[in-house]
Design a protein around this nucleic acid. Structure first.
Lengths: 207, 207
DNA sequence: CGAAGCTCTGAATCGTGGTTCACTTCTTCA
DNA sequence: TGAAGAAGTGAACCACGATTCAGAGCTTCG
């Protein structure tokens, strides 16, 4: 039994893999998915193209993982903020919306890639999971609001999805070119929009 | 001067062009953009591949035109409904939202293609114009509402975009599999959502 | 050391589907 | 009718970028 990869070697291997994922992510954050070819990423990671395929079965899998990473990072922040206790649903939604917007506006290219840019099917599924994650985070807050009597009973999943969509769409345009000033105004508008959209219990139903 | 295309001939030519666009649209409506290759569309239109290129400089241009057609049809309905006079902004928004949802749920594959499916850059711009069209239709209603004192002054463009995004996102999931029953419930939820999201003047601002 | 098994390399390969173009067919009109 | 010009044809072509693979270079351990 002349050879068995030792811990040290496996660590090196893992590090290479890590560099590749990181490079993929940097590339997407810098130039969008459209700019992210396997050759480019390999070069950025300082490895040969073949090495990428030693670590990932296909381009789709590589970027699916990269998206998953970035998604998780983004999602964690929003979930964190939305779960703060001692606050009512309206406050929690407002906090989550603000966090969502700030992060998107801080990294517009990545945000665009995660939210809206055309991608491979394999990556698309990672994106769907992200959107579902946001939706569920909002839905949890809404459910709590209903339970506590702050909100009247409603289809929380659909409303949560609508909130996510509203943010995405309203941000996509500004993601390309938003100066610092309009950013803050935009955030205020969206926070207010989402707050008001909540089906509060004390309010009359119109239809 | 032995040959000059006569009216009759030009009509035939136009008809062929029309058949190609129609075939492209049918293909997208039936199987999504992913299924829409030039060969397939040509076959469906009953012409050779080369003929497609006699009428359109590229695949992108062909589908951009097809998208424009479909978009216009969809948009016209919503604009029409949203401009009905003798109604206040809330009612007009509700009517527009309902029309939007009903049409999307009636042709889910086309709706998905128009709203969310990954497409060529050339087609993407047609899509952006569609979204902008919806946004502007809503924005006009909102502006009227502000002018009439029904709504308080706000960033109508952003709010309108948010409404469009809310509908798109909330519909994308159900577009794949929605039975008749849940459809109606979904529409009610979304109409109410959008009505409540409006920044009405008589309401307290929270933030 | 040296055999074995691993990782890395990157030029060559390959698949897909949009695009071309030499040719045929049709239309017009002297 | 026949010359000229346009529309239509579809097999061949080609660009592009993902994927492969035979060999070079490391790492481990008897």
């Amino acid at each position: 039994m002349p050879y068995r990869p030792t811990e040290r070697t496996e660590a090196r291997r893992a590090a290479t893999r890590e560099r590749i994922v990181a490079a993929a992510l940097e590339q997407v954050a810098g130039g969008g998915y459209a700019s992210a070819g396997v050759q480019t990423v390999a070069a950025r990671a300082g490895v040969a193209v073949g090495t990428v395929y030693r670590h990932f079965p296909s381009k789709g899998d590589l970027f699916a993982e990269a998206f998953r990473r970035a998604s998780q990072r983004e999602l964690d922040v929003v979930v964190q903020v939305s779960q703060a206790d001692g606050r009512d649903a309206r406050e929690r939604v407002a906090a989550a919306v603000e966090a969502f917007c700030r992060r998107a506006l801080a990294g517009p290219v990545l945000a665009y890639a995660l939210i809206a840019e055309p991608v491979d099917p394999a990556v698309e599924s990672a994106r769907l999971r992200l959107r579902a994650g946001y939706r569920d985070a909002f839905a949890r807050v809404l459910d709590d609001g209903v339970r506590d009597g702050e909100l009247r009973p409603h289809d929380t999943r659909t409303v949560a999805a609508a909130l996510v969509g509203a943010l995405g769409e309203a941000l996509v345009g500004p993601l390309s070119a938003a100066n610092g000033n309009s950013k803050e105004a935009l955030i205020v508008t969206l926070v207010q929009f989402c707050e008001e959209a909540l089906p509060r219990a004390h309010e009359r139903v119109h239809a």
